[in-house]
Design a protein around this nucleic acid. Sequence first.
DNA 1: GTCCTTAGTTCGACCGAACGAAGTATTTGC
DNA 2: GCAAATACTTCGTTCGGTCGAACTAAGGAC
Lengths: 160, 160
Amino acid sequence: MDSEHREKDGERAGVLRRLMAAGRANSAVTVMFHSAVAAKQGLNATEEKTLDYLERRGPLTAKDLAELTGLAPASVTGLVDRLEAKGFVRRVKHPTDKRRVLVELDQEKIAEFAVFFEDWARDVAAACEEFSTPELETVIRFLTVMTERQQRASARLSES
Amino acid sequence: MDSEHREKDGERAGVLRRLMAAGRANSAVTVMFHSAVAAKQGLNATEEKTLDYLERRGPLTAKDLAELTGLAPASVTGLVDRLEAKGFVRRVKHPTDKRRVLVELDQEKIAEFAVFFEDWARDVAAACEEFSTPELETVIRFLTVMTERQQRASARLSES
DNA sequence: GTCCTTAGTTCGACCGAACGAAGTATTTGC
DNA sequence: GCAAATACTTCGTTCGGTCGAACTAAGGAC
């Protein structure tokens, strides 16, 4: 290995180290931000998770929520009661099966809190002015790759 | 505004939109990963937060922890009891003031769980091979800027 | 040296969130 | 059309985590 290679490798290693540090710091702050939002909404972790499922998958039955959250049916009843009392969701009739209860988001309530995200979105956009479009494309590619990897790492961690 | 500008603006807007989406997805997964790690360690949110403070600031007194976590003194006693029972921290004598109790991390226990992070670090390093060194520099710069902004956004959210 | 303050613990109580078991309503299978 | 299965709720209980009040031990002031 010639000296040029050694130098390149050293630089690369340093960059990786700094990237790790930056990623770690960013994760810590992301978690804080998330829990600050939850606190603002007056929601606990379970309730937050439930709203997240509903946002991604649309209306779900109590049974679906039980499976997704890992809670007992009785606990889901309580969970939905709380979310309904706070105005985040509604119980609606299932179109074909009268035994089932569909839980759907109250879009108005969600919009109430969207204000904070718009604030944050403006912040992000402002920060992006320091970056060229190709640079942002690189960032998007990076985030996408990492999201997918971390997703798998989470799953591995949870199951084993 | 000529057609070239219009096109550039449109492209930029699209990139920003995709960046937001990528960032949002990444945040969601980060939070999941974090809670998966906590579950693996058998820690709740408060305990996790406490360990984080100890990692960043070194040994702290019970009073310090009470202020940082916002808990009552009695609750801190319980919190430290639990962390001590699980082997994550130790109570040690304060060098000058015998009333005080210093809480310090058990580095061996921390190292036990570092394995999972090494796994993840390898994963990250592997994913980074798809990126040139200058690209990674861009990512670092982006993460750093965003971390700082999100930090401030969290603080604003928490206080108001 | 005595009194007041400070640091932390113990104790009893409380609350939110989870659970299992039993109950109701509805659908499915034969 | 009746029995078994399914979806959800109700009820009583339990448990973890927090709290305030009272207590102990150790500094600090004068």
